[in-house]
Computed example of a mutant assay.
Amino acid sequence: MNNRVSIGYVLAVVATIIWAGNFIVARALNQDVLPIGLAFWRWTIAVATLAPFTVRAAVADWKLIKKSLPYLTVSALLGVTTFNTLIYVAGHTTLAVNMALIASCSPVFIVLMSRLFYGETISLTRAAGIAIAVSGVVLLIAGGSLERLLSISFAIGDLYMLLASIIFAGYTMLVKRKPPNLRMTTFTLCTFSLGLLFLSPFYALECWIYHPVAFNPSIALALLYVGVLSSVVAFLAWNQAIALIGPNRTALIYYLIPVFSGIAAWLFLGEAISLVHIFSTLAIVCGIIITNRTKSSLVGIRNIPKN
């Protein structure tokens, strides 16, 4: 059990590190690629990358796939078609700081949904841990300035981002409900393929009204990152982490995304790391540790089926 939990944490951290880079890539493509086009080519690359390694297993699981088609359809609509597209739409209509602030709500929604649908308790210790982690995120975004925090203005894109955060929480809940005999690779291939299928008519409409994606070397490399790493590697890691340690524990690791984004900006963009970054990181990590040390975090893990 301890080994499974450790692996689950490592996989969740791997997913958040990759997704932190995904936010940087998405911001860089805002002026060059329209939201649905970015989502369409991301999942096209993801399916093309994943299919050669998973088609045989999917064929073997065909009867279970047909039986689970309604569940797979809803999972694909939430986790693939809608969630990521809303992030890209939000990136065109709001500031990155707003996106990061609202994205920090996802773990809170996951904990609340776990309480609502699975009856998992929210102890005072867990609530305190969440509050400390959220305060770390807010401190990081505000740069230690209350004036900067109060001066943040909100736009229609913030509503898109809020909806995306709720949808991501719902998707995380659904992953926990994965049929025990359905392999994780089969689940991932099916949701990616269905999600891409649902996106196709919207991309065709976007091309007709505006224009298709104009490829160049930098856009191609960025799409490979979001298609292979942010989609295939990160989603497989995240989904398996949920299977190993449950949605609540996995969700709290999501708070590390702004921390990893800051480190990536320091490494690749030359942005300085200040004392605010250090204190906010410590607050986020302490909040995660406090929350995951509660007994309630073990609910739903004891009876997890082995894949």
Rank of each mutant, 00 (worst) to 15 (best):
I18K: 00
V259I: 09
I289L: 12
S165G: 11
T281S: 06
L267Y: 11
L162N: 05
V299A: 15
W62M: 08
A214Y: 11
I245N: 00
I288W: 04
I288R: 04
L50Y: 07
M173K: 07
A251N: 07
V80E: 00
S296D: 02
V80L: 05
I110Q: 04
I245K: 05
Y254D: 06
S123I: 01
L95H: 12
T172N: 07
A155C: 07
Y210P: 00
F268Y: 13
A46H: 08
Y254G: 02
I167M: 05
F109W: 13
V74E: 11
N22L: 14
F215D: 13
A222M: 12
W19Y: 06
L139E: 00
N3E: 05
L95D: 12
V134Y: 09
W266Q: 11
L174R: 02
R56N: 14
T250H: 11
L221K: 10
V25T: 12
S261N: 10
E147R: 10
L174P: 00
S123E: 04
A243D: 13
K178D: 14
V13E: 02
P107A: 14
I7Q: 12
Y118C: 13
S230W: 11
A127K: 04
C286H: 04
L150Y: 08
N22I: 11
L101F: 12
S280Y: 00
N303M: 04
P247H: 08
C286T: 15
A46L: 08
N98F: 07
V25S: 09
T82I: 10
P180L: 12
Y9C: 05
W19A: 04
N30S: 15
E271G: 02
T44Y: 05
I102H: 02
S123H: 01
S296F: 01
L267R: 11
L78W: 01
P52Y: 10
I45K: 03
T16R: 00
I130H: 02
T44W: 04
V10G: 01
I156L: 14
S114Y: 08
I110T: 15
A57R: 15
T191A: 10
V25Y: 12
I289Q: 01
L50C: 03
I257A: 03
N30T: 15
S231N: 09
W41N: 06
L101N: 00
I167K: 00
L34A: 09
R177I: 10
I290M: 04
L101H: 01
